[in-house]
Design a protein around this nucleic acid. Structure first.
Lengths: 236, 236
DNA sequence: CACACAGCGTGCGATATTAGCACACACGCC
DNA sequence: GGCGTGTGTGCTAATATCGCACGCTGTGTG
């Protein structure tokens, strides 16, 4: 991974053979705009993506027609509202049901609660409730963030929910015995994670907490397990 | 608008000259998948979008590399979690701050609360809180839904926030006098809308309610105006 | 006020990318 | 075991794209 990632563990897609270059470039524009909330000009986009200005222009027009980009009155381009329509069906029920559970968990523990789902060999953060609740999220994690499956408490918990593998990390075995996983600074430095899987979800799912100080693992683990159980029962 | 819309007012983007056909096709796949939560096969996608199977295959591979699609173990394709990363920055602060305000409004009125922002000549529904709160949303409205600016209470309220236009609808003038707009069945049949703009938002924004029975307009209007005011004060 | 400048938008040909074919493969079903 | 459906992969023709050149708009400056 020699290029393209500006945030922790967020890998930019590489143009591989058997992929469409034009579509790839268009999507790269979207991913670029994620990191520029105040918008970019056509020229800046063209430079960043590495295409000719007129090419960027055409791609932006196309994205705009789909409401995936918008242009303010100064022609600066930012992400468009059509994206929320596209994102809305993604694990919709799960997110709707999980929100009150996470809020409860956050209120009980004064820590940031997460909902994470597995996607192949990676884990995706789907929902976060921070404390205090109305804070804007300037933290290391963001919804939609993608990390490898074998890192962090959420990933460990998911691996522990499967049958033991020969070369698995010791933490996975510990998580399997305890029912919840703990990790220290694996995804963000000095952030401690405690997670448990949600039984019965269609795709592997976990609920977890982020802490900045070493917790009473058993107490926090019980809270997380309780939240996972509660969410699990709502899924039926 | 002769083709492509399956839901109320949701218009599919047309391939216009000056647009990239490949990117357009790729995005069409995403929009198609919105309506198929259980996934589609490559062949079904190819048919629906009107491209050759191998073309669809390549497009899907590209989308997949960007985590915009995922394939389950039976090769069925559905929307991927990368979309929540893309959607997350869209009006992020506004949505974060508006949620508690909308929840309060819903609890007070037992009606569905909406947050709507303007995008050029269209309005986009950004957030909805339904009553009961944990219900899955099977209603006529969905987050991300796009409607023309001159329909429904949210649009009327936004138009009323601008200087009077010569040919404007009478309802706009009424909304301008009262400070909030009311509409009867303009977006979804027999659904009554009451909306007020949020002063001070970067893009024109409104807060509103959906009702199924004719309300006491002044009472509901006061509640909506209060919510808009509260949200407005949080933006500063 | 006129000028220059920077960035945006649009035709139009050369070219590289894509479209579609033909085939091989995997899987489930009779 | 054979068949049928659906997926994945080289390869060439064809076509959509790329990038150039030009005109435009709006902004800052002498």
């Amino acid at each position: 991974m020699t290029s393209g990632d500006t945030l922790t563990g967020v890998s930019a897609a590489q143009l591989d053979s058997g992929m469409s270059k034009t579509l790839h470039n268009g999507l790269q524009i979207l991913e670029l705009l994620v990191h520029h909330p105040h918008g970019l000009s056509i020229t800046e986009i063209a430079e960043a993506v590495g295409v000719h200005r007129t090419v960027a222009h055409r791609l932006v027009r196309t994205l705009e027609a789909h409401h995936l980009c918008r242009r303010d009155r100064f022609k600066r381009i930012s992400l468009g509202a059509g994206l929320v329509r596209l994102a809305e069906p993604v694990e919709q029920d799960l997110r709707t049901l999980a929100r009150p559970v996470l809020e409860e968990l956050t209120d009980a523990t004064r820590a940031t609660a997460h909902l994470v789902v597995r996607e192949n060999d990676e884990q995706v953060r789907m929902l976060m409730i921070v404390e205090p609740r109305r804070a804007r999220m300037h933290v290391a994690f963001r919804p939609g963030q993608i990390d490898p499956i074998d890192r962090g408490s959420a990933g460990l918990a998911m691996l522990a929910a499967l049958p033991p593998e020969p070369g698995e990390r010791a933490e996975v075995g510990a998580a399997r015995r305890r029912g919840f996983a703990v990790s220290y600074g694996e995804i963000a430095p000095s952030v401690i994670g405690v997670s448990a899987v949600v039984p019965g979800a269609r795709t592997q799912t976990s609920v977890g907490l982020s802490l900045f100080e070493a917790p009473d693992e058993d107490e926090i683990g019980r809270a997380v397990l309780g939240a996972a159980e509660r969410l699990s029962s709502m899924l039926r």
